[in-house]
């Protein structure tokens, strides 16, 4: 199931072409906005699932997202550094932060609950630092990158038309999936799966447990920071509550669990479901819908973990795999 069968290449190329052309041909601003939002969050959720699928449940990814978003925006406003350099800088900061927190964690074998709670502290720290340095970051009121005159500029990574943003988000999302598949086919995957089963056994078999876990953590943190930077450049506004802190971290976990943790498109399905549900409730009920979306999310999360721990896509896939086998037997 790793390699795409040859007969399906045409199908995949067709799907990719449809994803590029159809929305651009349609071009209505509101659906376009929803699509862009879904793609950016899908990428963020995919980044989380890179670690989550190997049993490294992090509740600190909100922190990495915040670092990506704020470093990029602060570098642009204060140093005049173009996001083309600011985003790599943000990714570098996120990677460093991931190393500083994760290396001792893995070295001292902090796993499971304890790892989740240490990373929870990380997202708390990033949130509080953003709020505490309000002179620089605007605190809980949020932060806006300075707009260039005219609104669009390649150097400033600011675009007013939604079509450009759609293509950018699509490319980044596609790159996220490519990284997912690259990991899926690598030796790293086998090493990490062995580690998630039994660390001692993996170490005895010659796997460098700490190094393998660090690699995937840094990849995941940098991707998450990228999604934060992208979100900030698209919205032209970030606040600590939307890109960092515990709620965002839990939101990532939630969407991935609903979509499916162990399949490539699971996080994307999770993003589609959560964002469309949120929008439908917002439009259907108006302002009185405040709270209802999270009420349903929370309920769904509990129900899914109890009854469908593989997520929607994961369950569909394993059901499909089971049915032909039974028919042929």
């Amino acid at each position: 199931m790793n390699a795409i069968p040859k007969g399906k290449v045409g199908l995949w190329a067709g799907a990719a072409a449809a994803l590029v052309i159809l929305p651009l041909a349609w071009g209505a601003p509101y659906p376009m906005h929803i699509m862009i939002t879904i793609l950016i969050w899908s990428f963020a959720y995919t980044s989380w699932s890179m670690m989550g699928r190997f049993g490294l449940v992090s509740l600190g990814h909100g922190g990495f997202m915040g670092v990506g978003a704020y470093v990029t925006a602060l570098a642009w406003n204060n140093l005049g550094l173009s996001p083309w350099l600011g985003i790599p800088l943000g990714l570098l900061c996120a990677a460093l932060l991931a190393l500083v927190v994760a290396w001792p964690c893995f070295r001292f074998r902090i796993t499971g609950h304890y790892f989740a709670l240490v990373t929870l502290a990380l997202s708390g720290i990033v949130l509080q630092v953003i709020v505490a340095t309000r002179g620089l970051t605007g605190g809980s009121l949020g932060y806006t990158p300075d707009r260039v005159p005219g609104g669009s500029s390649i150097i400033a990574f600011q675009f007013t038309d939604k079509a450009t943003w759609y293509l950018i988000a699509l490319v980044v999302w596609g790159a996220g999936l490519a990284i997912w598949y690259a990991v899926e086919r690598s030796m790293m995957r086998y090493a990490l799966e062995a580690i998630s089963e039994d660390e001692d056994a993996a170490a005895a078999a010659g796997v460098n447990v700490t190094a393998e876990k660090l690699k995937i953590t840094v990849i995941s943190a940098m991707m998450t920071a990228m999604s934060g930077a992208l979100y900030c450049q698209y919205q032209m506004f970030v606040s600590p509550d939307t890109v960092s802190g515990i709620s965002v971290s839990l939101q990532m976990v939630f969407a991935v669990v609903v979509g499916g943790l162990y399949v490539a498109l699971g996080p994307t399905i999770g993003a589609v479901i959560t964002i469309l549900l949120g929008e439908a409730l917002r439009i259907g009920f108006g302002p009185s819908a405040v709270g209802w979306d999270n009420l349903i999310y929370g309920l769904l999360l509990v129900v899914f973990i109890i009854f469908l721990p593989q997520g929607i896509l994961g369950s569909i896939q394993s059901a499909l795999r089971r049915t032909p086998a039974r028919a042929s037997a």
Partner: peptide, 28 residues
């Protein structure tokens, strides 16, 4: 109790779902 036999991390995440649920229930 339905999750007592499953992985500890699932129990942690399920109570995370309850966190969302209770917060929103209070909002509503």
């Amino acid at each position: 109790s339905p999750l007592l036999a499953s992985a500890p991390i699932n129990q942690l995440l399920a109570t995370g779902g309850v966190l969302f649920f209770l917060q929103s229930l209070a909002t509503v």
